[in-house]
Amino acid sequence: MTKRILPVLAGLALVAALAVALSSPPDVLQGDFVRILYIHVANAWLAFLAFGVTAAASIGWLVRKKPGYDRVAAASAEIGVLFTAVTLFTGMIWGKPIWGTFWDWGDARMASTALMFFVYLGYLALRRATPDRQARARRSAILGVIAVVQVPLVYFSVVLWRTLHQGLTIRPDSVQMEPAMLVALLVNVGAFSLLYLALLTARVRLARLEEAVEAHERAPAGRAVTAPRLETGQ
């Protein structure tokens, strides 16, 4: 039942979120461009959540070796990469009018988000490159664990790089928020959370179906080998 309710709910919530984002008051400094941030921030948070779920599921797989953990880890990483891409894209189109540039090396979060994007692109590439399911689950779970240890350091090092060379910069988006805008942001976070859940459950279900198709009528490997059709002396 949830497999129909969740997508519908997520769809409705996204429509509502869009309506709230478009009807909320324009920002004093950013004008209408602030509306991009509702989607941008919501996607960024969800991307972090998604990679967090991948990390937890990776550890879960290493401890329990249950295929369910692997499906969740993989699905969540795929969605996380998608959300990170949206985060980077919306960040850039917002940055052009507000900061005057698509890419601002002064913002540590942009650089570390981009690096995280590459880490999990690598994660997905490793999965694609590993044909055997058990090996794929093991290798990607291990990478998931290494990433958990290393990603905070990547983030920290980029922050350190900025703070030591430029000093902390105050950005317009860190200024106190108006209540109407906070509501718009929270509605968007809620809507994208529902979208995340809907995509996650659908992707996990799809993975299970893929495995079922693969398993369908598989005879032992040895049965595929028959006697040669050749005879000597012909």
Binding site: P131, D132, R133, Q134, E211, E214, A215, R218, A219, P220, A221, G222
Partner: peptide, 9 residues
Amino acid sequence: RFGTVPVLV
């Protein structure tokens, strides 16, 4: 099983 292929049964 290797993946879903049974090798020993």
